[in-house]
Amino acid sequence: MTAKRSNLISVGRLTGVFGIKGWIKVKSFTSPEDNILQYSPWWLKTRHGVKPVEIDGFEARANGIIVHLPGVDDRDEAALLTNVDIAVEKSQLPQLGDTDFYWHELVGLRVKNRFEGQECDLGVVKELLETGANDVLVVVGDDSSADRRERLIPYVWETYVLAVDLERAEILVSWDPAF
């Protein structure tokens, strides 16, 4: 095991055992779901630190992905790895276009609002939600914001999200602060 590494990004989670030969179910956070299989090594984030692993077998099934890890050859060993996050080096992620961002880049950014000629601070992005139609920013007010409300702002470029400035750690939105 190695110490925690700050350049890791979670891309999935080991969620449960499959069968008796050490196979493990995977919940992928990537899109499409099987993109998680393109990364190597995986870093398993355990309570004892992070550990690099290579998968030595996988199957994409109708109800999700299952993997086999070297040395994990029975159900009891696999059970010890359930609820463990799978991370990869950030440098392995593909480059995105100018107006595309990974969720981990948006979490923690301050949200500034410009609506009907008024400007205010709405808070900080706590997380993002996937709704099917579009992603949603969960913005939580703090001591620096207009109020302490939690707001759900659709991540719709040029309609509600006007700009993202990673260097300044800010997102500019156009959102009715009453919502």
Results as ranks from 00 to 15, higher is better:
residue 118 Q to H: 14
residue 127 E to H: 10
residue 69 L to P: 02
residue 64 G to Y: 07
residue 105 E to W: 13
residue 84 V to Y: 05
residue 119 E to N: 10
residue 126 K to Q: 11
residue 63 N to D: 12
residue 68 H to M: 05
residue 133 A to Q: 14
residue 137 L to N: 10
residue 124 V to H: 14
residue 119 E to S: 04
residue 122 L to Q: 00
residue 88 V to K: 04
residue 80 L to H: 06
residue 84 V to S: 00
residue 68 H to G: 01
residue 96 L to M: 14
residue 129 L to Q: 13
residue 128 L to K: 10
residue 95 Q to D: 12
residue 123 G to V: 12
residue 116 E to N: 12
residue 75 R to D: 10
residue 94 P to Q: 07
residue 112 K to E: 01
residue 104 H to R: 07
residue 103 W to Q: 09
residue 86 I to V: 01
residue 131 T to F: 10
residue 113 N to L: 02
residue 100 D to Q: 14
residue 94 P to K: 06
residue 110 R to T: 15
residue 72 V to A: 00
residue 117 G to Y: 00
residue 120 C to W: 13
residue 75 R to V: 10
residue 125 V to F: 03
residue 78 A to Y: 03
residue 89 E to V: 08
residue 84 V to E: 00
residue 126 K to I: 09
residue 116 E to K: 01
residue 96 L to V: 02
residue 70 P to D: 09
residue 112 K to C: 11
residue 80 L to N: 13
residue 123 G to W: 06
residue 106 L to V: 01
residue 104 H to C: 11
residue 122 L to M: 06
residue 105 E to S: 04
residue 86 I to Y: 07
residue 102 Y to S: 03
residue 110 R to P: 10
residue 126 K to W: 14
residue 73 D to I: 03
residue 108 G to V: 01
residue 105 E to F: 06
residue 72 V to S: 00
residue 76 D to E: 11
residue 91 S to P: 08
residue 91 S to I: 12
residue 113 N to W: 00
residue 108 G to M: 06
residue 69 L to R: 02
residue 88 V to F: 14
residue 88 V to T: 03
residue 99 T to N: 12
residue 79 A to E: 04
residue 66 I to T: 06
residue 138 V to E: 09
residue 89 E to A: 08
residue 126 K to M: 06
residue 124 V to T: 15
residue 112 K to Q: 07
residue 66 I to L: 13
residue 95 Q to P: 15
residue 138 V to T: 12
residue 106 L to C: 12
residue 82 T to H: 09
residue 104 H to G: 05
residue 114 R to D: 04
residue 116 E to M: 01
residue 69 L to H: 08
residue 65 I to G: 12
residue 124 V to N: 05
residue 114 R to H: 11
residue 134 N to M: 09
residue 115 F to S: 00
residue 132 G to N: 09
residue 84 V to G: 05
residue 67 V to K: 11
residue 93 L to H: 00
residue 111 V to L: 04
residue 64 G to A: 08
residue 117 G to P: 08
residue 128 L to I: 09
residue 86 I to C: 08
residue 67 V to Q: 08
residue 71 G to I: 07
residue 102 Y to H: 08
residue 130 E to R: 15
residue 79 A to Q: 07
residue 99 T to D: 14
residue 76 D to V: 15
residue 63 N to M: 10
residue 139 V to R: 08
residue 77 E to R: 12
residue 79 A to F: 08
residue 92 Q to D: 12
residue 120 C to F: 11
residue 135 D to E: 14
residue 122 L to G: 05
residue 101 F to C: 01
residue 79 A to M: 01
residue 80 L to Q: 09
residue 73 D to W: 13
residue 95 Q to G: 11
